[in-house]
Design a protein around this nucleic acid. Sequence first.
DNA 1: GCTCTATCGCAAGTCATCTTGCGATAGGCC
DNA 2: GGCCTATCGCAAGATGACTTGCGATAGAGC
Lengths: 193, 193
Amino acid sequence: MTKQPRRRGETVRRAVLDATAAELTDAGVEHVTIAGVAARAGVHETSIYRRWVTKEALLLETAQEQTAGGVPEPDTGSFRGDLVALILALDAFVRSPIGGALLRVARTTSTADGATARETFWRDRLRSSSDIIDRARARGEIRPAVDPELLMQAVVGSVHLGVTFGGRPLDRARAEELVDLLLAGAGMPAADR
Amino acid sequence: MTKQPRRRGETVRRAVLDATAAELTDAGVEHVTIAGVAARAGVHETSIYRRWVTKEALLLETAQEQTAGGVPEPDTGSFRGDLVALILALDAFVRSPIGGALLRVARTTSTADGATARETFWRDRLRSSSDIIDRARARGEIRPAVDPELLMQAVVGSVHLGVTFGGRPLDRARAEELVDLLLAGAGMPAADR
DNA sequence: GCTCTATCGCAAGTCATCTTGCGATAGGCC
DNA sequence: GGCCTATCGCAAGATGACTTGCGATAGAGC
């Protein structure tokens, strides 16, 4: 039953989180060290180790905070336009230092801590995209039978995979091609179903 | 210009690679230590450090060797069946210790070494799936305009994302749902195009 | 069979993450 | 304003990745 004293703690927390974000964009994910963060934040290393279970946890929390409202929810007037915009924004974000850190940690972490965190992130992302789908459905642009979660899994998954293995960033033409494929499907138009 | 002496080297290499694979399946990715591998292989730590640039490189090479022919190329007679089988096999593989190590390293590594390795892996995966697409195209099951690489990016990406963020393994019903979505598309059947 | 070189074993050391025990202090509570 | 407790600073240490210099030896070439 902690009676929330915490003024001191909150100051440290903010300083460390800000310092981590700065180090992240300055040096990149793989060159961030606890010692460096501690020095920049004007805080002792031990204070960091005591507050965050592991380095990954610190990176995760930092990335999540920076992400809140990071990827915008486009509203272009058409489902196709929304998806293209979402894909381009997501691709750019995932290639940024913050986004890269988030993805890397989400994949790496195996602690319960990290598991819940990545579930939260994913849920947020789904919720933000559910608006896009709701509007599309209202406009009659998608088949009602389509599972929104599955569709978004395909959309976001394509982007993630492209970043993980592909290398080169998405340009608008490629993004449109991807969206058109997901909208029209790979199979033949009518028959055989 | 090394005149390939290497009998001694090859023995060590095999022992270390086998020991790494064993440790990987025994303890999981995050509990593999160089010291442990060295002990199991009956080799000094230094020999490992001298041969492999980094721990990730060792894991990568081990995973790649184990993967060769790891994910099968299904031939069920229909495109839909092939895709469902591929997705289920891929999901299982990516959740295995070896597959997990491969994915983790592919995402983590930022060295040129790792970059080429993951490109190779991805190219292999694409090539293996291109047969599926070729057969489907011959049967007239897919629209000719579809870019095979993009389609596979969506298929494989969905699986990867599901593993990274989702948590629970794919069952057959969910896999079929995903394939049907990719085949039929999310958009309305005819009009508005 | 002998030389000769690349590879292995060994020892000592660096660096970063993470732990633990202890004393100091900031700030909430009365 | 004084007590009291949670948090911070500090020091010392454990562990694992990775490096380096040196001596020993296996095995290829003659």
